[in-house]
Design a protein around this nucleic acid. Sequence first.
DNA 1: CGGCATTTTGAAAGCTGTCAAACCCTGTGG
DNA 2: CCACAGGGTTTGACAGCTTTCAAAATGCCG
Lengths: 244, 244
Amino acid sequence: MAQQRIDTSARLPAAGRALPCAACDVRELAVCGALRPEELHRLAPILVTIRCEPKATVFYEGDAADYLFNVNKGAVRVSKLLADGRRQVTGFLFPGDFLGLAFNDTYSYTAEAITKTQLCRFKRAELERLLQSMPHMEKRLLEMASNELATAQDQMMLLGRKTARERLASFLVMLRRRAERRGQASDPLDLPMSRGDIADYLGLTIETVSRTFTELRKLGYIDLPEANRVKFLRPTALEDAAAQ
Amino acid sequence: MAQQRIDTSARLPAAGRALPCAACDVRELAVCGALRPEELHRLAPILVTIRCEPKATVFYEGDAADYLFNVNKGAVRVSKLLADGRRQVTGFLFPGDFLGLAFNDTYSYTAEAITKTQLCRFKRAELERLLQSMPHMEKRLLEMASNELATAQDQMMLLGRKTARERLASFLVMLRRRAERRGQASDPLDLPMSRGDIADYLGLTIETVSRTFTELRKLGYIDLPEANRVKFLRPTALEDAAAQ
DNA sequence: CGGCATTTTGAAAGCTGTCAAACCCTGTGG
DNA sequence: CCACAGGGTTTGACAGCTTTCAAAATGCCG
């Protein structure tokens, strides 16, 4: 029941690894469709690039929400903790995804890098000032928030009503689609997160996740050349198993 | 496993019960803090009041998302279905809550009245046109979406990691807080939704919800003078049981 | 090679689900 | 007024999926 996996990695010293904005490859953002070139041009002056090592914390639940981020490279895990250490991973972020889209005064979740990661950081106050002269931008943010909401509702369906097999199948199908959309390799698909991360995302235990991987492999839907790499042998069967 | 509770109620004929905007008590909105008086004044011309009987559908998952709503009176259930009939209720809306805040082309969920309900309806296209002359408004919507996201993440934690007792305790504590915030009676608290609705919201079955109500009653945390009315006997103990 | 973390597998327990029946309340009709 | 029907809720007994506890297997890295 108690799943005490408190991450003891030190918080990322925000100033320590900040680079001047010129270092940020803004084209990364454009490629991922999050922002348009003209929007990037306007945002470039207020953006700072951050590089994180695996297990570095971008921010903690409860921190003052002074910054917004855009993931540039790598992968980020977003999670919440209960007082007794139980953890729920609410999302994984990949290049092009926004982070910190919470317009409250504090972050309501923790964000941690799970691989070497590069992020663009925007100071919220500056962004909001800039947004006043970019009438479309606020609508874009609203669209993004709206998409996140739809995703969150799908996840509630997964957590509330799907079986372990359906959850893992849904997860793999979702990761594959997102990799395709980013134009990244999607058939031998890399899983940057651990079994524990997947378990906490799917509302299961590590053991059940592992057993369910084995189950999907024995069904011939996938292959696991390595623990963190998935080959899709019968993608359609896997999609059916996801019970979308 | 299959929980076929398909609602066969006919869709609400949108034109049928629409009333002129003058009939909408816009003060209701202000009271609930969703909108400010000056904002209401601007919105009044494009808003139409809708009245729904219990079980009426406001819109279905997949419908063109042409309207936004603000719940005025009553209670609305928002849900999604899997192909085999399993249902996940993603939220309950009460007076002051916004509905349809999805800026996609179609609704990603179904909204149904669970009591006699009154809603203010805004045509999205008109609202967006109006928003261009209301710079603050878009930010307000973004804040609302952001709050919904935070709520959705709490719900993921509930569905993924909490026990049945913790789920029901969390649910009752949340309903009580929201009733207080609206200034409605919150101690003998009315539950407008059925056990089935609660089950589908909490990712449980009707039987488990019922058993857990009995459990909380036997623990002395609550009383159930009627099935749909809760008296809070030990609110602090209930909050502890919610494992926030 | 050895140490350590992660993943996989096994066995058993437990919480919640399933199936079934009783109970309760309300509305209808004799 | 009472009998009856019907829907929702509660309770019981049992099954099953997932968890828990434990140990083996695998992979990584010094």
